[in-house]
Design a protein around this nucleic acid. Structure first.
Lengths: 334, 334
DNA sequence: ACTATTTCCTAAAACCATTTACTAAATTAT
DNA sequence: ATAATTTAGTAAATGGTTTTAGGAAATAGT
């Protein structure tokens, strides 16, 4: 078995002390001759020296780690989000530890405990199975920073969100502008706060324009959207559909297709999120686009800022959403 | 900020030595009087003592962690895989740290170093930007176990794979059985070994049946598939398409749709992977299904087994693939 | 020529938990 | 009564890194 190369080995090889090596490798090497510096730097590569994280953090008292909790890595919204987080984390020499809780509150709690054990400096939570309980019971006592995505109900802790109410309005207004007067909304029966706002925006706009709305409840998955079509076709006079997220819309495409109903001729359909898949499905999905990668980036930035600076007051970042008109909506024909 | 409670504080409070405390807390406390044991155990809870992860791992040299490297978390194949890994890791009190390398060899190396730093016990690599180099330079010197998914070229290290050659044959045979005689294959120009085998299986079957094949090269993404359609329509007489993965097929759907070409009437299309999306796109995608979650589970199992048991000889797990006939292929009409 | 300041470098302490190798006292065996 | 064993405990070494405090040699200042 090969022993790991330590800073000691490197110092020995370079004919210098461990202090010197440590300083040079940590960018505090201006006090050393460029000769020594070069020698150390070269040997580092040559000997493939990698500092031991545990030893380093034991003394530095920071794990250079943030935890990320999402409900489902398989959902493109969250995988995009992760990309953004990962990018910023990397820039700051942090690593994200990602967990997918599958909407299971118990699993969520278990993973959060695991993360705390590992002294992560902070947590990004984009999953809300049991948020406020977890915060009070685990995060606060252990003095762990946290940031919630799309959830601004907790008084402490930073937030990154988009204007869901406005997004909902945007979606409704688009359908109304196209002349639709009876619209079905497909939503989950178990809404997080941002989804509730999204829905309210949608409803309020419809109400103001005297547009009739029908509510269909189903899980926010492809399968959920697919099955909801069974309810949809029982409604009479509906000409447009709003699904609370894009993934659900994909299921609706399939459900309608099986019944030989056409998008957008028989039903205009608008989704929400702006995942890449929406551009490849036919007809292309009209949607409200969230800046998903940007949300991930911003989340990591704000959290890391708080970690370095625990005393700044609660930050709330609001990012813009936008209507992206593609092919799945059209003007109603009488 | 409150200083963290250390084992020393706990020992002092209990009027005993750190050795005693350590032993008791690690279940090796049968050598101590039940009196001492109780005192320590109670104080642990009372003082909210949590052993420092870094200190512990520094000396134990195991972080109860495995690293997972995938090219792209956004690709459903890999997010499914991650689900399987996560499940088994959890059962074994291990934590997976997941990185998405985006096919960037440098990024891949960077993340592997990060993982080594943290003394992960093992690595699951489902990304092949620079595998053999990384293994020789980083993994071996640092004595880190590793398992490759769909890559069985390295002499050491375990492997989990499916029978790609057979899968390729299956795909070809299906199209041939339906009477297709001119088939386009869409593949990446930069193939990993398993993809190469997949392709060979496909080609060999076609060759044996005197079926003509046309090769179109494009990235293995939705966009790649979409753009490849431009080349496809220049080919004459082609009636069927094989895409090397399902995601690419999704792009082909779009490309054909835009040209008003129908699946399966104008082109039969078969993909490879069996991702969930294939069941929601219309017509449903015929594909070669890999047991993706199972692959993840098996990978974690084999790697963890090796970690506990470094001397067992190289293990290679081969999982079955299956043809799933859905709606995107049909018998050719003369 | 003598002191003051850089320049370049190092020894040793600190971080916290685990483990090894022991000791002293109490109990049991002969 | 003495030797052997068991019980209950601890001191000290260990792991790999960063940081503090300082030292010797070279250069600059007067």
């Amino acid at each position: 078995m090969v022993r790991k190369v330590t800073i000691n080995d490197l110092a020995q090889a370079a004919g210098t002390s461990v202090t010197t090596v440590s300083q040079i490798l940590n960018g505090k090497g201006d006090r050393f001759s460029s000769d020594t510096r070069k020698r150390v730097l070269n040997l580092k590569v040559e000997m493939n020296y990698v500092p031991d994280f545990n030893a380093r953090n034991l003394i530095m008292k920071s794990a250079q780690t943030i935890g990320v909790l999402v409900p489902n890595v398989g959902n493109p919204f969250f995988s995009e989000l992760i990309k953004g987080i990962q990018a910023i984390a990397r820039e700051n020499q942090f690593i994200p530890i990602i967990f997918s809780s599958n909407h299971d509150a118990e699993l969520e709690k278990y993973y959060i405990e695991k993360l705390v054990e590992r002294s992560v400096s902070g947590l990004i939570i984009a999953s809300s199975a049991s948020t406020s309980e977890v915060i009070d019971e685990i995060l606060k006592p252990n003095n762990i920073q946290y940031l919630l995505i799309d959830e601004n109900t907790v008084e402490t802790g930073d937030t990154v969100e988009t204007d869901d109410y406005y997004g909902g309005q945007l979606a409704a207004q688009h359908l109304i502008d196209l002349g639709h007067q009876k619209i079905a909304m497909m939503i989950s029966d178990d809404l997080t706060n941002n989804l509730r706002r999204r829905l309210e925006g949608f409803k309020d706009s419809c109400l103001k324009n005297k547009t009739e709305i029908f509510q269909i409840e189903a899980p926010m998955t492809k399968k959920g959207g697919y099955e909801a079509v069974a309810d949809l076709v029982n409604l009479s006079g509906v000409t447009a559909i709003f699904t609370i997220n894009d993934e659900m819309a994909v299921g609706v495409y399939r459900g309608l297709w099986e019944r030989n109903l056409k998008i957008p001729e028989d039903f205009s359909l608008i989704g929400y999120d702006g995942i890449e898949w929406g551009e490849y499905i036919s007809p292309k999905l009209t949607t409200i686009k969230q800046p998903i990668v940007e949300m991930g980036k911003k989340s990591a930035e704000v959290l890391l800022n708080r970690i370095n600076n625990p005393k700044v007051k609660k930050q709330t970042v609001n990012l813009p959403v936008e209507l992206v008109v593609r092919e799945s909506t059209q003007r109603i024909r009488k």
